[in-house]
Design a protein around this nucleic acid. Structure first.
Length: 183
DNA sequence: CCAACGATGGTCT
DNA sequence: GACCATCGTTGGC
């Protein structure tokens, strides 16, 4: 399958967040369907609210992997968006595993399918994503492709786990999908 | 069931 | 030195 082109990511972060739903993420030979995303731009809840060493990737690139460590023990994976100079990234919050289930269970140390990839920290642990992936251009070690799967209905809500900019409804998910982190 | 809490370390002021 | 785009466990109902 052909990976999404870089131009897919050089667009409005909210549009990219919605359009990523239903696409397939491939990393470490594992495939998983994206079912929940969040958009982060230059808003008070975003790392890119101010440009720092860490958030520079969100300003200076699009179509790249942005991985950060959260709470000292979990990683979160994002894809950078918008044109160069404009900050943006889409956080992948949940995926539906499509293969290598045994490997995911091993990494997560659980046999519960529903608990493998239903959260940003969980899916990085399950798929073996960490800071060695930070900055990589999408399309090689990490890629996303469209297998033609259709998303029937997109749900929308405020973003999870933030305290600022709660009025923004920039979380998107596949309505009714059981792998979404939370209804 | 679910609210509260602690783990744990990089990043920023 | 404070703050997290989280998660698993704990303890109360």
């Amino acid at each position: 399958m052909k990976p999404l082109p870089q131009s897919f990511f050089a667009r409005s972060t909210v549009d990219v967040a919605k359009d990523l739903l239903g696409k397939v993420l491939v990393v470490n030979g594992q495939e998983a369907r994206i079912v929940e995303t969040e958009a982060y731009g230059k808003d008070p809840a975003s790392h890119a609210f101010t440009k720092t060493q860490r958030s520079a990737l969100m300003y200076d690139t699009y179509g790249r992997v942005y991985v950060y460590l959260i709470y000292g023990m979990y990683h979160c994976i994002n894809f950078t968006t918008e044109k160069v100079g404009e900050p943006g990234a889409v956080l992948i919050r949940a995926v539906e595993p499509l293969n290598n289930i045994d490997k995911l269970k091993e990494r997560r140390k659980t046999d519960q399918i529903m608990n493998l990839c239903s959260g940003p920290g969980k899916l990085c642990q399950a798929l073996g994503i960490d800071k060695k992936h930070n900055g990589l251009k999408l399309g090689k070690e990490v890629k996303v492709y469209d297998d033609g799967h259709q998303v029937i209905k997109i749900g929308r809500s405020q973003r999870i786990g933030i305290k600022d900019a709660k009025q923004l409804e920039w979380r998107f998910f596949v309505e009714g999908n059981e792998f979404v982190s939370k209804a």
